[in-house]
């Protein structure tokens, strides 16, 4: 399979990258691990005239815990996310999302920025990141801006990121005591699968054991990853237990718009939203109790 022809740029600094992207605008496409872009280009779904590699920009590869945030460079690989102690210990559901992505070979190339930038509705990293309320740092020649991940995805394959911009960093606020999160993906196989449904849940318990923050994120059941407002509403202000979680799970089923496609019927996906919501909430609760 041949790739379409393109010009290749490998900026060494963020500034250089900004210049190139400003110059070529929507004729350019950033590449990091390439695990989505190269596939799309081979399938002739995309053929940018300019491909701009961000992989040689050292400042995009870092991971720091700083001021209560876990800050992950856009070019940090998914495999390294699984290994990273700072991620596992602070935002474990994100480790779970990373471990669920693709195959070990893909994870060694794929990056967090790429998984967000390609905006696939079945992607593994958006649900946990949305559950933690992450923020994306976008950079361009005009400067940088922060955008809440909830506002980032527009439709399959498109995001808030302008053609002259690139994702530079993802910042996740370290959850407070009493918080916990869970992520589960359901596919056909146990490895390298495209998800049928994936769900992440986050809850935070206050001192009296009442849920004061709840976020439930549903994947594969809408054009973008969805928050589940009805489910979250049920959880808020309540003490967690199985019955409550069951109610939230049922509500989550009404929070989504699954379509029937070759991976499954809408009916099944909706039902699985319920099952996975319940299960991720249970994981979240276990973790929340431990973090208290």
């Amino acid at each position: 399979m041949l790739l379409p022809k393109f010009k290749f740029h490998e900026p060494k600094t963020e500034q250089e990258a900004c210049q190139i992207l400003t110059e070529y605008g929507d004729k350019a496409r950033p590449i990091a691990g390439g695990t989505d872009l190269v596939v799309n280009m081979k399938k002739k779904l995309m053929s940018p005239e300019h491909v701009v590699s961000l992989s040689r920009i050292a400042s995009l590869k870092g991971l720091q815990k700083e001021n209560g945030f876990v800050k992950i460079g856009a070019c940090f690989t998914v495999a390294d996310m699984i290994e990273a102690k700072d991620i596992r210990e602070n935002v474990n559901a994100l480790s779970a999302g990373a471990a669920a992505l693709g195959s070990p070979l893909v994870r060694n190339l794929a990056t967090i920025g790429g998984n967000l930038g390609s905006a696939r509705p079945a992607a593994d990293l958006p649900p946990p990141l949305m559950a933690y309320g992450a923020t994306l740092i976008l950079k361009s020649g005009k400067g940088k801006r922060n955008i809440a991940i909830d506002d980032f995805f527009k439709s399959p394959g498109t995001t808030e990121c302008r053609p002259d911009e690139f994702i530079a960093e993802i910042q996740v606020l370290t959850p407070p005591a009493g918080a916990g999160a869970g992520y589960i993906n359901l596919g056909a196989r146990k490895a390298q699968d495209c998800n049928i449904v994936n769900v992440a849940s986050f809850i935070c318990l206050n001192k009296s054991g009442v849920i004061d923050t709840a976020r439930v994120i549903l994947g594969c059941v809408g054009p973008v990853h969805l928050r589940a407002p009805a489910a979250e509403k049920i959880l808020m202000g309540e003490k967690p237990d199985k019955v409550l979680f069951r109610q939230a799970a049922d509500a989550a089923k009404t929070d989504c718009l699954p379509i029937t496609d070759f991976r499954g019927t809408g009916e099944y996906k909706r039902a699985m939203v319920g099952v996975l919501t319940q299960r991720t909430l249970e994981i979240a609760l276990d973790e929340a109790k431990k973090n208290n």
Binding site: A188, R189, K190, A191, Q192, D193
Partner: peptide, 16 residues
């Protein structure tokens, strides 16, 4: 054919 690749045509992996 909708699934003419080894991502969507699913043969068992070593984990299956």
């Amino acid at each position: 054919i909708i699934n003419s690749d080894l991502a969507e045509y699913k043969i068992p992996t070593i984990l299956d």
